[in-house]
Design a protein around this nucleic acid. Structure first.
Length: 490
RNA sequence: GCGCCGCUAGCUCAAACGGUAGAGCACCUGACUCUUAAUCAGAUGGUUCGGGGUUCGAUUCCCUGGCGGCGCACCA
């Protein structure tokens, strides 16, 4: 840390020199006439020396030549060169300017001109320090590439690697686009509890916390499903929420302990209506984010303008394996799974075997937008029985780019059946399944007051952003992915 | 949680078989009034992730811990 300290001391020394000269290194505001992007666009209307312009940004490079200095400043959307001459700004100002260095945030005022290499440049008449920085920037040529540092110090990553900012801007736009679509379709944006006395709506292990005054355990939500459905009971016929959910599970390229899920529910609709809606929503969102609604992910062109492929769960398995698992006994399912090379135990319940088989063999191949529908009942305790096919539920999952990006069903609204499903989950839990869902008496009470027939949908926002930004890891689409604490001084 | 790989200056990276730890950029000093990875001359900068072991000697080999990446497992 000796080396870093030395670099910081040198910067603090310059800071003190600025102060000694009566300059506030952290002034309150700056009003530029243009952003850098606007300067570039406005250039054709400005002739040399004609108009005084000013703009602010971070100093990304400095090239001094005695009595002149060139450098670049960057703001959110652009980079522009500045040029400072001692004979223009004066001897004292030039000396003060020499205390400004790479990384500092400055305001530059001057006139636009083109250098002899034809680069648009601000010939500075005034340079004002707006923020003195105390740490050196990463090396200008390679920048910050170490993944650990990029994730831990995202603030540095963001200004050193402008293309990273694009990922997050796209993320924001995706959410905006989806929100507008939903609002345009009569959905009401709502907020429901993150701290829940009982967790539900998904099969996952929760984070547990504690309320001091109430002296009670609380859980961070794993889903907002059960609360949104309570709102349907309350007559809010179409609701949605962009929800941070929390699941106490492993971390990998596709999983972060906290993640964003958009859930929406619509009364009087069923899962088939929602398939159409998801198709339309993704067509609109993709149109807003990508030229022609076509996205390239891992080298695959994914066209959201085309109708999605639709295939029933057991048909998808049959298509891939040539075997009809629908008609097999539990023993046969186990034996076939072993034959297909799956790592399953003799006592693994057959729905879990199918689930495993599906995610191993089928899911990775679902690159083109695909709806898989009509799932086995055992995996879906909150979905309504299939209207005509015993043992199945009216559920579909959208797949894109080889992974599941959502989950939807015709919502189970029969309170007696729902209680039975919860009781089956309780039995699983008693046998040691920590992810089995918890019986929620208040939710059942709500259903007993009557929830209209409804469809519900959850969309994994992070994964969609990965697809739209061609990002290999969920960490690349989260500003601050979860990390173990670093040790020692930073 | 398990396996494999990595961790060297602020950043990006080197270091033959185990033999005084280096470069570029940044920083510091000096020169330089159209440069742009500015250039030129010089100087500074290290707990080689931590701890232990083997050895005359460890960045290097062994053990152990930390952090990260990738894969597996679990999930969305």
């Amino acid at each position: 840390m000796e080396g870093l300290d030395k670099l910081r001391r040198a910067r603090i020394e310059k800071l003190n020199q600025l102060k000694a000269a009566g300059v506030n290194p952290y002034p309150y505001r700056f009003r530029g006439t243009h952003t850098i992007e606007q300067l570039i666009a406005a250039e054709k209307n400005l002739s040399e020396n004609e108009m005084l312009v000013s703009t602010a940004g971070r100093v990304m490079s400095v090239r001094g030549h005695g009595a002149t200095t060139f450098g670049h400043i960057a703001d959110l959307n652009g980079t522009i060169q500045f040029y400072i001459r001692k004979d223009i700004v004066g001897k004292d100002a030039y000396k003060l300017f020499k205390l400004i260095e790479v990384g500092d945030i400055v305001g530059v005022e001057g006139t636009l001109f083109r250098t002899k290499t034809d680069e648009l440049t601000i010939r500075a008449q005034k340079v004002e320090i707006l923020t003195k920085t105390l740490r050196p920037l990463p090396e200008k040529w390679h920048g910050l590439t170490d993944k650990e540092l990029r994730y831990r110090q995202r603030y540095v990553d963001l200004f050193m690697n402008p293309h990273i900012r694009e990922v997050f801007i796209k993320r924001s736009k995706l959410i905006e686009s989806m929100r507008q679509f939903l609002i345009g379709n009569g959905f009401l944006e709502v907020e429901t509890p993150i701290l829940q006395p009982l967790y539900g709506g998904a099969s996952a292990r929760p984070f547990v916390t504690y309320h001091n005054t109430l002296d009670m355990k609380l859980y961070l939500r794993i889903a907002d499903e059960l609360y949104l459905k309570r709102l349907l009971v309350g007559g809010l016929e179409r609701v949605f929420e962009f929800a941070k959910d929390f699941r106490n599970e492993g971390i990998d390229r596709a999983h972060n302990p906290e993640f964003t899920m958009m859930e929406c529910y619509a009364a009087y609709m069923d899962y088939l209506d929602f398939m159409d809606m998801v198709e339309e929503m993704m067509r609109v969102v993709a149109g807003d984010l990508a030229a022609g609604g076509v996205v390239t992910y891992k080298g695959h062109e994914i066209d959201f303008g085309k109708p999605w492929k639709r295939i029933r769960y057991f048909d998808a398995i049959k298509e891939r394996t040539g075997r009809d698992f629908r008609r097999m006994s539990d023993d046969e399912i186990f034996e076939e799974a072993i034959e297909l090379g799956l790592d399953v135990e003799k006592d693994t319940p057959s729905p879990a075997i199918l689930d495993e088989l599906f995610s191993e063999l089928i899911e990775p191949e679902l690159i083109e937008p695909t709806f898989v529908y009509d799932y086995p009942k055992a995996l879906s305790p909150l979905a309504k029985d299939h209207r005509s096919d015993e043992g199945l539920v009216e559920r579909f999952e959208p797949f894109v780019g080889g992974f599941e990006v959502g989950n939807a069903f015709s919502e189970l609204n029969d309170p007696i059946e729902q209680r039975k499903r919860f009781e089956q989950q309780a039995a699983l839990r008693a046998r040691g399944d920590e992810e089995a869902q918890i019986l929620d008496e208040d939710f059942l009470r709500a259903l007993e007051y009557g929830m209209p027939p409804a469809a519900g949908l959850g969309i994994g926002i992070d994964r969609l952003v990965m697809i739209f930004t061609d990002s290999p890891s969920i960490r690349d689409v989260l500003f601050f992915p979860h990390m173990r604490p670093e040790e020692g001084p930073v």
